[in-house]
Design a protein around this nucleic acid. Structure first.
Lengths: 353, 353
DNA sequence: GCGCTTTAGTAAAGCGCTTTACAGTAAGTT
DNA sequence: AACTTACTGTAAAGCGCTTTACTAAAGCGC
């Protein structure tokens, strides 16, 4: 093992400043109330001259705290959840914590990731995943070992964890109401795998929205996708919907990417968006803004921030009761459903040249 | 300071297994050649029974290595660079390293971030930024302290660092040639701030491409943007270009988002894409695939992987000469420039929630 | 001057692990 | 029978910091 050149330690500083290690330590950690001005100055100068940098590893060993938080991203399929990491890191660092990032491809992987972070002795853990939790026992163990855990988008079942989720149901209901308000009576919805919690919540929201607007539920207008759906499938589903004897005038997609593909499909088939068919997404991805997509925002960044806050509170007060936050999903009205005064899309055909 | 319940240490295991700490340590670290089967088994069982987890903090202090790499993301303006983090983390972890992530808003911030990571005693550092480096002295210092640094997209000036960049120039040249091959004679280009290295490289590539195809250079077709450009500006620039007495038949955008806006602008103004005007982007963002955008791929994920590899090599052999890797930017032909005969034969196996 | 508190600082014991130097057996050699 | 070699394992000294318990000196009231 190639030895690094010896680092300058707190002891070197102490020697240089003519004080003891403890005093230097106190100076570093701001325990400076009972310290002569002059001593402090001498220590600071010594530190500067020796270009001293404290070792947070040694400090971690001594204090049993690492000033590090762990973030586990499980099954990141869309770049959407990646967007939580920047705000999370920012929030954490503002509070004096660094962020150790691990992504996990599946649940087995997640266990490993969590264990890794535990060995690294993070002071807290946030887990964000798109999947339903089958088991949280590994997380429970970590938490009982004294490392608080906050969950994002992993709803409901585990009251012992701090968690933040968003209100899929209300979000979809809102967009249904929005469309109904624009005069749509036949509103289709493309959903993900039906055994997912998010799918169920969205269907609930869909039905709730219809009810509230006194619109009938028509099973033909519910188009379930599945894990292996491709752009081709999405296109096909649109064509299927349009081929109905009584086709929808609005389509709610299962996410913004699907929505983008749908818009394109419609335009290619000669329909205008939104005047012929309205399209809404779910997510509010960065690009959605540029495509003018009307969509329901999934507040991942906000969720990340709040999760960190929960974690910090929990670190400060380990015995407090776990908090559960449910974030609203704001409706973002842009162009693809109309309703904003401006009319954009002409009938175009952007097929080959 | 709230004390955690005492963790089970290597000593507890040693006691339980009836061996010495050193032997347990050896067992953990695979130094098992000179160890009786039975001893090993006893140790493993003791570890299992006590649910022992080694403390990597303590190990870090003892070995002076943390098995952690630092990643600094400076000035993330597009989500594009965020996409490097997943592959980087994966690559790092595969090699037994964790990833400490810090993002920095500006150069001052970057200094701080680097210092933080140094105090955390990362074993290596990768810095990825969209900006030109004004100074790398802080990085130089870190490296001379024994922490290797790999740079991504921070070209050229600093031979002492391992680095990986991509060939903007060749990428743009390729797309010019592609367009020329499709019959375009008037190819416009929207570029970023002219004082940027990437802008200059792209302009070089643009000119090189024109020359190679024996196309004249027309300054009217070069439309420089700036940092504060908005979608509105981009739209205006398109309209300006189209208002020329001799307007372009193809537009190369400064990135994929701009390209997406341009496509929309063209469609809104009644032009067809690509038959009336061809549009190309630069980036290859995830959504570009779904929009059928023809674009030049910026290989950020690959760059991330290679950077980690460079780092690992450097960690293994600290005295080796720094390596500089220049990645090609492959042309990704989709629909917005035509030239592909078939439409949308892509597929993904992405599931999403 | 005497106790008493306050002020300013120190010594030393860890935190949990690695690693070096060393030791006790048992077996193979001459 | 003395002498190497393995073979298995141990004791103890750190790694660089924090923190507890303690002390020496100074200030103060009387």
């Amino acid at each position: 093992m190639a030895k690094r050149p010896n680092r300058t330690t707190i002891n070197d500083v102490a020697l240089a400043a003519g004080v003891s290690m403890s005093t230097v330590s106190n100076a570093i950690n701001g325990k400076t109330t009972a310290m002569a001005e002059e001593t402090l100055a001498r220590i600071q100068q010594a530190m500067r001259e020796l270009d001293y940098r404290p070792s947070s590893v040694a400090r971690g060993l001594a204090t049993q705290r690492t000033a590090t938080l762990g973030l586990v991203l499980t099954e990141i399929e869309t770049p959407l959840f990646l967007q939580a990491v920047t705000p999370i890191e920012r929030e954490a660092r503002q509070a004096g914590y660094s962020l150790l990032l691990v992504n996990a491809r599946n649940e087995a992987d997640e266990r490993e990731a969590v264990q890794l972070l535990q060995e690294k002795q993070v002071d807290g853990l946030v887990v964000i995943s798109t999947s339903d939790p089958r088991q949280n026992d590994h997380l429970g163990k970590v938490q009982s070992d004294g490392i608080p855990v906050a969950l994002i988008n992993r709803a409901g079942f585990s009251p012992e964890f701090d968690q933040v989720n968003w209100d899929n149901s209300a979000g979809v209901a809102a967009i249904v109401e929005h469309l109904a308000g624009l005069g749509h009576r036949r509103i289709a919805v493309l959903v993900g795998p039906v055994n997912r919690r998010s799918t169920q919540e969205r269907l609930q929201g869909y039905q709730a929205g219809l009810e509230k607007c006194a619109l009938p539920f028509d099973n033909d207008l519910v188009y379930p996708g599945d894990y292996t759906a491709t752009p081709k499938d999405w296109k096909q589903s649109v064509l299927d919907l349009l081929a109905l004897t009584n086709p929808p005038t609005a389509i709610i997609a299962s996410d913004d990417i699907v929505a983008a593909v749908i818009v394109r499909t419609l335009q290619e088939s000669g329909r205008r968006v939104p005047s012929d068919v309205a399209v809404a997404g779910i997510d509010d991805q960065p690009f959605s803004q540029y495509l003018g997509l009307t969509t329901v925002q999934l507040p991942v960044a906000e969720a990340g921030r709040q999760a960190i806050q929960l974690l910090l509170q929990r670190i400060a007060n380990p015995t407090a009761k776990a908090q559960h936050i449910l974030l609203p999903c704001p409706l973002v009205v842009r162009d693809t459903c109309g309703g904003k005064g401006r009319l954009h899309e002409r009938s175009t055909n952007n097929a080959r040249g």
